[in-house]
Nucleic acid binder design. Structure first.
Length: 287
DNA sequence: AAGAGGCCCTGATAGC
DNA sequence: TGCTATCAGGGCCTCT
């Protein structure tokens, strides 16, 4: 769920709060995330100053003193919450997301600073925290990950080469992080609709024109999503703490039975499965 | 070696 | 109303 735009929004808000701050303490309430939080997690991070916050693909990267890199992946349901300490020493509810309340359950990790803390919540525990303790490990970690969609490396010649002889359907290629990073199921559906490409079409059969449109609309859709603060999917009644309005702009995702938004098209959007993942398309516009 | 499919996990929702 | 089944999907793993 948190795809590139959502992680970017978290990165931007996190940066404002924690850059140049020193981690006072860490509280691990439940280490059993996607990967178990390592035993000396607290020891390594305690009293370290945060030097830089960045995003690579769907990962948050927190660079600390002594070449320590903390990698955070939000998985499907991970959220970070900024909780401010009040004068009476109680923490107030204040999140990275508008109108957010700290959930009662599944608060697994607390990163404590002098007058606030960052709380990691993740009901499904698909997310993870990983420490890389030198620059080489950090570089290696992202070695296989493909270019960022906004990067000039993500261009016609690059994608053409990657699609060559590739037998998998284009949608699976688009969400393959080793080819281009940061695109997940939701945005892949949206991008392919704008590019007017059938998600089932084999990668090797994608035309020059289609490659160019896929690149163009990858940049377009993700950029627009970031500008809208990301997507807050469906009507989450109890998972608050998510802002962003790009879900209002969805043209196909979760639009089964709705009329296609292309000019002069009256087809209904259909929902199909590709590799057990929901795939929404207009079978008239995406051939 | 590329590609397909399984698995991890909880909560919302559908159907009986 | 309470039960069970299904779905949501990112990344890693195994099997063919």
């Amino acid at each position: 769920m948190p795809e590139l735009p959502e992680v970017e929004i978290v990165k931007q808000s996190l940066e404002k709060k924690v850059k140049y701050k020193v981690i006072n303490n860490i509280l691990i309430k439940n280490p059993n995330l996607r990967f178990k939080v390592e035993k000396n997690f607290k020891k390594i991070l305690k009293n370290k100053k945060i030097l830089k916050i960045s995003r690579r693909s769907k990962y948050l990267v927190i660079e600390l003193q002594n070449n320590i890199y903390l990698i955070i992946h939000l998985g499907m349901t991970g959220t970070l919450h900024y909780i401010e300490k009040k004068k009476n020493n109680l923490y107030s509810n204040l999140s990275f997301y508008k109108s957010a309340i700290l959930p009662k359950k599944h608060n697994h990790i607390e990163i404590i600073f002098s007058n606030f803390k960052i709380i990691y919540n993740d009901p499904r525990r698909f997310g993870f925290f990983r420490i890389l303790n030198n620059k080489k490990k950090f570089i290696n970690y992202f070695k296989k990950i493909g270019p960022e969609p906004f990067d000039k490396l993500f261009c016609y010649n690059y994608l053409k080469k990657k699609l060559y002889n590739k037998d998998v359907c284009i949608k699976n290629t688009l969400i393959n992080q080793n080819i281009v990073s940061g695109i997940g199921n939701i945005y892949a559906n949206e991008i392919l609709f704008y590019a007017k490409v059938n998600p089932f079409k084999k990668s090797k059969n994608i035309s020059k024109n289609e490659i160019n449109k896929i690149i163009k609309f990858s940049k377009y859709v993700l950029d627009k999503a970031i500008k809208k603060g990301g997507s807050s999917i469906r009507n989450f009644k109890d998972i608050k703490g998510i802002t962003g309005t790009y879900q209002d702009e969805f043209v196909v995702y979760d639009k089964k039975g709705k009329i296609c938004k292309s000019k002069n098209c009256h087809e209904k959007i259909i929902k199909l499965n590709i590799s057990n993942r929901s795939t929404y398309m207009c079978k008239y516009c995406q051939k």
